[in-house]
């Protein structure tokens, strides 16, 4: 596989970085010529994954969050969000709609939204080691581009 363009970012798990992560992802994805709707989907999925790392991964500290975006063959955008936080004991259960450990400020819909806005969603997690969320989306190639 040929190496296409990519970016890697790291920032502390502070909520002020949520908007930045969305904007950075949208700016990177712009070179794939996405529609407004595709761009909205990407921003939504990034917001969910990054917010999870900020809200859930580090209960008592402010740890690092890494975000990588990569363009794969076939005009596919791959997004990875990784933290080194407390991890998820039961990933399957955590991904069920409405499941949340976050109280009433959360709706438990984050993973459901990531899954429905992206074509691929994979979550790997280990307790006290951290969580890696990998998502992918094929950006439709426009005619006469």
């Amino acid at each position: 596989m040929k190496q296409h363009n990519y970016i890697k970012l790291e920032f502390p798990a502070r909520s002020v970085n949520e908007g930045f992560a969305r904007a950075a992802a949208a700016a990177f994805a712009a070179q794939m010529d996405p529609t407004m709707e595709e761009l909205g989907d990407i921003k939504t999925a990034v917001s969910e994954a990054v917010t999870n790392a900020i809200v859930h991964a580090y209960p008592d500290t402010v740890g690092p969050v890494q975000m990588r975006l990569r363009i794969l063959d076939g005009n596919v955008l791959q997004i990875t969000v990784r933290d080194r936080g407390r991890g998820i004991p039961d990933v399957k259960k955590a991904m069920e709609p409405m499941f949340s450990t976050g109280g009433e400020e959360r709706s438990g819909m984050g993973f459901t939204i990531m899954g429905s806005f992206m074509d691929g969603l994979k979550v790997r997690s280990a307790v006290d080691r951290g969580t890696t969320v990998t998502m992918s989306k094929r950006i439709q190639v426009k005619a006469n581009a």
Partner: peptide
Amino acid sequence: TFMDSSGIALILK
């Protein structure tokens, strides 16, 4: 112009 699941929780609240 943009909302994520935090907005869903806000609406329900």
